[in-house]
Design a protein around this nucleic acid. Structure first.
Length: 413
DNA sequence: TGAAAGTCAATATC
DNA sequence: GATATTGACTTTCA
């Protein structure tokens, strides 16, 4: 399946060894031949306002759909691609919105997210790879910037035109109840119903949720309900928050791994051995890896009382390592999780498991005996160190759990 | 069926 | 005004 191949396949495609190669060196690449066939930017009769979700149709000459192209694509260096795209956009004063809507068929927020936190190729599903293939094609198109500039001009022209006509009509084009006032979708005004107001969690609520997450990245329904009632939130909000937080922490860690590896993304460079990667059940676990209790931590997790002894009380915003790494995203800092007892000290036995990461980030502490509260030269080093420690601890914990089961079929990773 | 992935779009921030 | 963040939702997948 796409997902399986994305996360577990040994990357059959030829790996790209460097940023430059991956961005510019696609000679012989199936996609390279498509580069010049990138569809000219549609000259939208409506005034150049393309919509997300209706990206430019793809290169026509081969008759390949984007899905087919994605499937055919060799492994791309997503980090290098986004870096290059950001560069080009900045250099040419092109906005994310225009780029997203025109080239990728995505909204500005999605583009921002994608450019800031690209996931490694092998972690992406086919769908997730699509924007990167589009970006790659765009970068390869010698007229890409030119076309986008044209589009920008067209948009500006259309905007001015509308402004003018609205002024002459003396009623604002943007007036009325379009867009933000109504639920997504284009109902006629009569059918429109008011949007649900966006929930904005307060700092205390976020803090409490983070603490709860540190204790249990996968809270039981009971825990969720307790959290919801104590924070006066809907359970769906709490559930969504956990989903989003897990997902975003995971992505943060991808980035960190990439950066720790020197910005080169290749098979394995995200620091995960395939055997450890992509294990759903193993990804991000609770402190004890079970859902058995789910009661005690709730009150503590809400920050209603100090629980520094249980899980480290640190700012998840600044160091989201509690989510673990891409190996097992949700981790608890081993220094305080209570798991770092005898036999599970941070780093012990983890050398091999982290050899890839460590090898590529020699400036960091050795993978063994990672200090609890890092003495790293800068917060980033410290952050990374803690993250690795947490990751190691989690792996050790799983190994211990597995070892405690006699029947190998019961082993859980 | 639950979790992850992917995305939208409102809102915050720069 | 552009970009970043994030709650909510849909789709995909195991």
């Amino acid at each position: 399946t796409p997902k399986t191949s994305a996360s577990c396949s040994p990357a059959p495609e030829s790996p790209l060894s460097s940023t430059e190669e991956s961005v510019n060196g696609l000679v012989g690449d199936p996609l390279a031949s498509q580069s010049s066939s990138l569809k000219p930017l549609s000259e939208d009769p409506s005034g150049g306002e393309s919509q997300p979700g209706t990206p430019l149709p793809l290169p026509g000459h081969s008759g390949l759909s984007i899905q087919e192209m994605v499937a055919m694509s060799p492994e791309l260096d997503t980090y290098a691609i986004t870096k290059k795209v950001k560069e080009v956009l900045t250099d040419n004063n092109l906005g994310q919105r225009l780029f997203g809507e025109t080239i990728l068929g995505l909204t500005q927020g999605s583009v921002s997210d994608l450019l800031a936190r690209p996931k490694p190729w092998h972690k992406l599903s086919l769908k997730g790879r699509e924007p990167f293939v589009r970006m790659q094609l765009w970068l390869q198109d010698p007229h890409s910037v030119e076309k986008l500039m044209d589009m920008k001009r067209l948009e500006k022209k259309a905007y001015m035109k509308r402004r003018l006509s609205s002024l002459s009509d003396s009623h604002p084009v943007d007036g009325g109840l379009v867009g933000t006032d109504y639920v997504q979708g284009s109902q006629s005004p009569g059918q429109q119903h008011l949007k649900k107001p966006r929930v904005v969690l307060g700092p205390e609520e976020k803090e409490a949720l983070k603490k709860a997450y540190q204790q249990k990245p996968y809270p039981s329904p009971k825990t969720i309900e307790e959290l919801a009632s104590q924070l006066n939130l809907k359970t769906s909000t709490v559930i969504n928050w956990f989903h989003n937080y897990r997902s975003r922490i995971r992505r943060e860690l991808f980035i960190e791994e990439i950066q720790a590896a020197g910005g080169v993304v290749g098979p394995g460079s995200d620091g995960g051995s395939p055997s450890l990667r992509g294990s759903k059940s193993g990804e991000g676990d609770s402190c004890d890896g079970t859902e058995s209790d789910g009661t005690v931590e709730t009150r503590q997790g809400l920050g209603l009382e100090d629980h520094r002894g249980a899980c480290k009380d640190h700012d998840m915003e600044a160091d989201s390592e509690a989510g673990g790494s891409n190996n097992s995203p949700a981790q608890i800092d081993c220094t305080t999780s209570g798991l770092a007892g005898p036999g599970s000290s941070c780093g012990q036995g983890g050398l091999g498991l982290f050899s890839l990461t460590e090898a590529s980030s020699s400036s960091h502490a050795p993978s063994t005996n990672i200090p609890a509260s890092g003495t790293a030269r800068n917060p980033r080093d410290n952050h990374l160190r803690k993250k690795k420690a947490a990751n190691l601890n989690n792996i050790i914990h799983r190994l211990e759990k597995a070892a405690s089961k006699e029947d190998p079929s019961e082993w859980e990773f």
